[in-house]
Amino acid sequence: MNTRIVILAKAPLPGLAKTRLIPALGEQGAARLAERMLRHTLSEAVAADLGPVELCVAPDADLSCWRDLPADFVLTDQGGGDLGQRMSAIAERVTPEQPVLLIGTDCPDLTRDRLRTAACALSCVDAVMVPASDGGYVLLGLKRFDHRLFNPIPWSTGQVADLTRQRIEALGWRLQELDTLHDIDDPEDLAHLPEFLNHQLN
């Protein structure tokens, strides 16, 4: 099944990216890690070979940091609003034409094989979720759209996955959940960072 992967990414710039990691890594180290994670996510998404890969960015698709990424992808702006409003707009735009996998760049374990597994699941269900260990999720796959799925939700809290499950159930959709993975957001999460991303961050 042809599936669009949309990666929501923040520009990997000092003071803007991975700000919760600055106490552990400093502004430059946090930005370097953000860029490595972005490149890794983009590489895995392209290698999954599911269909178009879209890099949906903030704050501005015209920034030079997006120009040297070595992959075949479509570059778009995230637009305004909170995370839910931005994801809702993407899902509304994509799902009439093809299923979509919405991901960020915070989970190095979201590999090409896991992306393929999620896309395959969408052939049998309406939505697929890869929960995060912090109570959020690292992937939400959809082949249908309803704005109630995204708004309002208290983003960046431990309620996100549970509330999303409840919304999907209320819509009468079929959901498949895959294995829970770790996001790399806070200093304590660095224990889960693969060694190939951990080299000379400070």
Rank of each mutant, 00 (worst) to 15 (best):
M1A: 09
M1Q: 09
M1F: 08
N2H: 13
T3Q: 02
I5E: 00
I7M: 04
L8T: 14
L8R: 06
A9K: 03
G15R: 09
G15C: 09
L16M: 15
T19W: 01
I22G: 01
P23Q: 07
A24Y: 07
A24I: 05
L25R: 00
G26T: 03
Q28P: 02
Q28N: 08
G29V: 00
A31W: 10
L33A: 02
L33M: 09
A34N: 12
R36E: 03
R36I: 00
M37H: 05
M37L: 14
L38P: 14
R39I: 05
L42R: 03
S43A: 15
V46I: 07
V46A: 02
A47M: 06
A47F: 02
E54M: 04
L55R: 00
C56P: 09
C56Y: 05
P59W: 10
C65S: 00
W66Y: 05
R67S: 12
R67V: 04
R67H: 12
R67F: 01
D68L: 02
P70Y: 00
P70R: 06
A71V: 00
D72V: 07
F73G: 01
F73H: 07
L75Q: 02
D77G: 06
G81Q: 10
L83F: 10
G84Q: 06
Q85L: 07
S88N: 13
S88V: 05
A89H: 12
A89K: 08
I90W: 02
A91P: 05
E92N: 11
E92M: 07
E92G: 14
V94Q: 00
Q98K: 01
Q98N: 05
V100P: 00
L101T: 04
L102Y: 03
D106Q: 13
P108N: 07
P108R: 01
D109E: 15
D113W: 12
L115H: 01
A118S: 12
V128W: 06
V128N: 06
M129D: 05
A132M: 08
A132E: 10
S133L: 07
G135H: 10
Y137V: 03
L139D: 05
L140E: 11
G141K: 02
F145P: 01
D146F: 09
P152H: 13
I153E: 05
W155Q: 00
Q159S: 13
V160Q: 01
A161G: 09
L163F: 10
R167Q: 08
R167S: 02
E169H: 14
A170F: 14
L171I: 09
W173R: 01
R174E: 15
E177D: 11
D186E: 15
H192T: 14
H192I: 02
P194F: 05
H199S: 15
